[in-house]
Design a protein around this nucleic acid. Structure first.
Lengths: 348, 348
DNA sequence: TATTAGCACTCAAATCTTTCGAGTGCTAAC
DNA sequence: GTTAGCACTCGAAAGATTTGAGTGCTAATA
């Protein structure tokens, strides 16, 4: 059965009211909306239909109705109109920063602050290439390798060495490293390349090994999955999770970046919607312990087609309207930073 | 009234039992300890005395006794004998790391893992001096400043510039910067010094300003209070906090580094005990919302007399024995790393 | 045919009642 | 000084009662 207009209106009112109050919504409450002009009895009949169709459910016999996952889904897809442009306060809290890492951390923080939910942001899946590499002699026994990745992700690595090098040696290494590595993507840096470098340099085989080890370590670190989170403690504010042990599990899960990556990886780039905002409601989340949560994700795009994900984790009874519009604005702002202003990812 | 031996024994048994079970301890329970050979009635009399003296209290009329803050204090100061060396499993989980920052993060983590409490570690209050500074040209419009502080704390700063510099210019700046800044403590880097450098360099006044700005930013960042925390979610496991809103407040407080610094700052270097282990019980904590917590702190020392603090935050009903001995071992290990092995703070 | 008033019914939540038992304090005997 | 014995207390758990929001159904109405 298709939902007729009236059923849609009623369903929308039920869900909107429930989102506000968190209490099961009764027929009387709905019948009070003036523009409807229906008695509670009529609403009851409609509600019975909506329940049969699986959009709402009674937590117990003599209670009002609350939305099911299916109900939320219908609401998000068909009923929820988005906030008027005027209503949405532009955040503009993002400062310009040069380093992608800092920018994304900031995004997570601002978003958590604005929404009062837990937020997570992944770095874009762009092909990370070495922009610049610098080996310096800190003291007789120590080198410092600094690797700047495209997007100004910076990795430092202390390399203890046995052999004493003079400045000229270090300079030579720098030229060697930059010749080979500049512009190379991180995946390119393999044994083969290292061997080629070794061949070219000839001498210093032991120390070269130490240096390469350091650089490989740094590169691996740079290649690690980067997820920035913020507002984890907001999870404690979701009363529907209730049980402290459940909350605790959820919180721990939220701190486990490995787990979070699973949460987000399926989301990136499924559709080609405008900013690809997606909502995962309750059981739609494949990760365990998240049945009582919803996750809203958005995709931001970098000039070369690389994409990253921004996610908001909240209770099912989440202010979808606000979250979606906030995310939309944020991704617009981000795209702006990445593309027009030629900021973070400036190739120079 | 002084506590006689028997009262001490009974108090110790009461507290030890309570630490284990978390339930109020009754006279019958204590009378069952063989080596005591006293009836419950006698214990009751003694308990009445101990209560009058303020060491224990009844949560309600017909319940057993639980320790007061004063009781805990007496236990920690006089009754608790520390764990036998044999019982304590050496952690040895600390890997050698070159960078102070990473080491301290690891300390916090290992400690949280071992104790199941929330932990916090402050960086030592040593006079931070610049060990090495390196300016590099990343691309035409961007410089990268890398500053290595004593202890191998590394700060990176991206400096956007307007003027185009050739490599020789950069080299000149590097020499200039290192000449002035190497060995300088962070406090030394003030306007006066910067002006001196400017005078020496003569030209490029605009770009020098940009560079100095970047370096000052990085230095300020390095000078910021550094506190590393771990195991915050363990707070959720303290049942005595109970209320989720209280727990939540505590958790938020724990994530606020500013607040934490207050918590620890009074502790450093009060006494000159062996590793200066201190216990703050309940109301003894001046920070609000922490009345139901205890904090155990220890001091580690660096060769030049700099000190840092390691703290463990747990419920009042905390395993003081274990925590104190764990902290003792850890500080010994840390002192070992800092002093003997000449690791992290190696002056080269 | 759709809507509604009316009414009996349901059931969670709040409140009160009862029971139970661990633990106490006190007294009198040892 | 120690202990057995006993009356007493009071929280926690379990059960009983009340309340009220909400339902479904039926019969009357427009």
């Amino acid at each position: 059965m298709e939902l007729d207009e009236r059923k849609k209106t009623i369903l929308k009112l039920i869900i909107a009211t429930y989102l506000e109050t968190g209490e099961p919504v009764g027929s009387r409450t709905i019948s009070k909306f003036n523009d409807l002009n229906l008695s509670s009895a009529t609403i009851r009949n409609e509600m019975a239909d909506l329940e049969e169709l699986g959009y709402i459910v009674q937590p117990h016999t003599s209670a009002g109705r609350i939305p099911t996952d299916k109900g939320y889904r219908f609401y998000v897809d068909n009923l929820m109109e988005e906030k008027e442009e005027a209503e949405v306060e532009k955040s503009t809290l993002l400062e310009r920063v040069d380093r992608m890492e800092l920018l994304l951390k900031q995004v997570a923080k601002v978003l958590a602050y604005n929404t009062n939910y837990a937020t997570l942001v992944t770095a874009p899946n762009y092909r990370k290439t070495v922009k610049f590499i610098q080996l310096s002699k800190v003291d007789e026994a120590t080198l410092l390798a600094v690797i700047v990745i495209e997007g100004n992700l910076i990795k430092n690595q202390i390399i203890p060495i046995d052999t004493i090098l003079d400045n000229e040696d270090v300079l030579k290494f720098n030229i060697l490293l930059n010749t080979f590595l500049q512009g190379a993507s991180l995946e390119d840096i393999n044994l083969e390349m290292i061997n080629a470098m070794k061949k070219q340099s000839g001498e210093y085989s032991v120390i070269l090994d130490q240096i390469f080890q350091g650089i490989v370590d740094a590169v691996n670190e740079a290649n690690e999955l980067e997820i920035y989170t913020s507002g984890a403690t907001n999870i404690l504010k979701y009363p529907e999770i209730g049980d402290i042990s459940k909350t605790s599990e959820l919180l721990e899960k939220f701190e486990d970046k490995e787990e979070l990556s699973h949460l987000l990886e399926e989301t990136t780039g499924n559709k080609d919607d405008f900013h690809d905002i997606q909502v995962y409601i309750g059981e739609e989340n494949t990760v365990s312990n998240m049945e009582d949560c919803s996750i809203v994700t958005a995709t931001y795009k970098m000039p070369e087609g690389a994409k990253g994900t921004i996610g908001i984790l909240g209770p099912k009874r989440m202010d979808y309207k606000k979250v979606v519009s906030t995310l939309k604005n944020l991704t617009i702002e981000l795209d702006d930073i990445f593309n027009k202003r030629k900021g973070v990812n400036d190739d120079g």
